[in-house]
Amino acid sequence: MARKGTESAETQSWQARQGQRRIVDMSGKALCADCPSSNPLIYEKSLTTSKESASMQRLAVCFAFLLVLCLPGAGHAAEPLTVAFLAGAGGLKSPFNQLAYDGLMEASENLSLEVIVDTTLADANDPALKRDALKRVIELGDAEYVIASGSEWVEAVQQSAQKHPDVYYTLVNARLEGLDNVSCIVFADQEGGYLAGALAALTTRTGLVGFIGGMDIPEIESFAAGYAAGVHDVGPRASVYVEYISDDEETFAGFRSPEQGYTMASRMYAKGVDVIFAAAGASGEGVIRAAQETGAWAIGVDYDQDHLAAGHVLTSVVKQVNNAVLLEVSSVVAGKFSPGVHVYGVKNGGVGLSPMTYTRDVIGKGVLEALKEIETKVADGEVDIPKTLPRQ
């Protein structure tokens, strides 16, 4: 996509010299290590996070990334592609948003990109403010490609995409179909939930396991449904207790209330539950604290949370958000943008369990081998995993 022919001085302040990576926030401050910056820490943190992973899953994604770069049109842009990143709830303090940002930063190491970062409205609930943020990065920042993290951006992206058909958009962890310039990164949450449920069934001593969700919404129910299915398929006599922290759809308080997560988990543990899978954002930290205090196990979500209470986080259901964003960005640069919903699951390395660094010795070789067999069946499509819980 060509840039506008004339640019104001204000617009030019957003832009990089050709061939030089530059990352700026909404106030125009540089955030990259090779540009003058009052605060380079965010960028340095993203590099540290990205480079720590050395799994086979990562190697497979990097290989796919190289294949994309070899496609006709890759790497031949006359000038850098301007990409705007709009963070969801929690900004870059949210590990999920940080992972999405990490994927973009890794792409910027290999591709000619100019990146605009906006976290100023991450926790804003007013749809009009979201729309204004998109207008700003496109009309002021001259963004040619927008990555928006979280379902709270759907309405604003829909309107913006209709108004700017020459701009590409990617929604992360949200669905929006029917627009030729919008792609969506979603994850097969039910598959990750199923693996967590299978492990819970293989390790529970009481036969009682729990699930705590931030809200009863489809994205969280798919975790719960997969988890319950995994438990019942592997341990048919086990019981699964499912609870949700909040039904507040305006503030999404269920994902921001560690104390409520702690109280709910403590109550479950007191009833004999010894494994709880928490899909509740920051509220899950309270569940993990309760597991540590009671000597029980919790299961983390979205990123590897095992270190938060070493030995008390059985595993974490990890979404490889950074890998997915990396592939989406490289496809745009290669001129191979593909609209629609792109699902990342166990088979393509989008969802899986953490390495269980602090618990694998306790879990034992036999259980880990059984879990590996289950994972292979899920990847091969041999297991029918529900996305919804049975209705009473």
Rank of each mutant, 00 (worst) to 15 (best):
V329Y: 13
V157P: 02
A225I: 07
E155G: 01
L371A: 06
A9L: 14
V273N: 07
H307D: 13
G281C: 13
E177H: 12
T120E: 15
D118T: 02
V378A: 13
S330F: 02
F255V: 08
G192Q: 12
E144I: 05
V24W: 01
H76A: 02
Y227M: 08
G28I: 06
D233P: 00
P390G: 10
T6Q: 04
S37T: 02
D166Y: 08
S27V: 00
K372M: 06
R136Q: 13
V209R: 14
S94L: 09
G281N: 08
I374C: 08
E44R: 07
K93H: 07
E250G: 00
D25Q: 04
D132Y: 05
A107T: 10
N348K: 14
D132H: 09
L66K: 11
D25W: 00
T204A: 09
V167D: 00
L176S: 04
R3M: 10
L202K: 06
L71T: 13
W14L: 12
M356E: 13
P80M: 07
G90F: 12
R267F: 05
R360T: 01
D126Y: 09
S222A: 15
T376H: 14
Q15P: 00
P218D: 11
E52G: 09
I288E: 05
P40S: 07
G254W: 07
L353Y: 06
G381V: 13
T359C: 07
A228V: 04
V329D: 02
Y227C: 04
V182D: 11
T206H: 12
L66V: 05
I147Y: 03
A296G: 01
G254A: 07
K319Y: 12
L327H: 04
N181S: 11
A9Q: 10
A33S: 06
T49L: 15
M26W: 04
T251A: 11
V167R: 09
I385C: 14
G150Y: 09
I276M: 05
K45I: 10
S239F: 03
A265H: 07
V154T: 04
E144G: 15
T263L: 15
M26Y: 04
V115H: 02
S37I: 00
A161H: 05
L129T: 01
V137D: 05
L308D: 02
Q190G: 01
A148C: 12
L67K: 14
S38F: 01
G254M: 09
G295E: 07
G28L: 08
E152P: 03
S53R: 13
V325C: 15
D306S: 13
Q98P: 00
A33N: 04
C32L: 05
I299M: 12
P80A: 14
A200S: 15
L86R: 07
S331D: 12
N173K: 14
H76P: 01
V242Y: 00
P236I: 04
D180F: 01
V367C: 09
C32A: 04
A124Y: 05
D132S: 12
D247M: 04
D306M: 03
A282S: 12
L327Y: 09
T170C: 12
K45Q: 15
E285W: 03
D247G: 06
D384M: 10
T251R: 13
N323C: 11
